[in-house]
Amino acid sequence: MKVLLADENSHRAGALARLLEAEATLDVILVEDDTSLIDAVRRHAPDIVLVDISRADRDALDSVRALSASGLERPVALFVDEDDESLMEDAFAAGVCSYNVLDAPVTNVKPLLRAAIALYRRFRNTNAELEAARKTLSERETIDRAKFLFMKQERCKEDEAYRWFRKQAMQQARKIIDVATDYLAHQNRNPKQ
């Protein structure tokens, strides 16, 4: 069975390909960069297409059935499992969906879709962790910059500067990062000579 993977995130596409290739009956193909989804389907004639739902060109696959000009001999359509709504909800929440060739022999798509959901979730979690780490880093940087500016302006030591920001934050019931951001913005607008 030929499976086409359409995902512009090459790391994720590669990981999903490796996962699926463990199954010997699957022939896995990746959509090349700069190739539209519909051209890739035309060229490779897959049985199943697993698509990253944020790919803007998947609308084209939606319309294949109705458009005679699509040039596809084998019509494809969004895979929908009406009996397993949670599978469908999980798939869209994870960011992946499947298009199936309508005249292909009936195959069990669900294990494939489940594998894709698991992998997409794992990538989403890793990304969220990365994003959180990045945010902590940039917050740290902002607080440091505000602190050093304060030290320069007020001719004080680092621990004194930090205490000032902490006190402001407590008094205003805000986070230190917000106080630091405001302080930097204020200093930028009204630089002391």
Partner: peptide, 15 residues
Amino acid sequence: VPSWANIADGLVWNG
């Protein structure tokens, strides 16, 4: 969202 398909899918599958 990037495309109309995402609007329809979002409504159908609880997004």
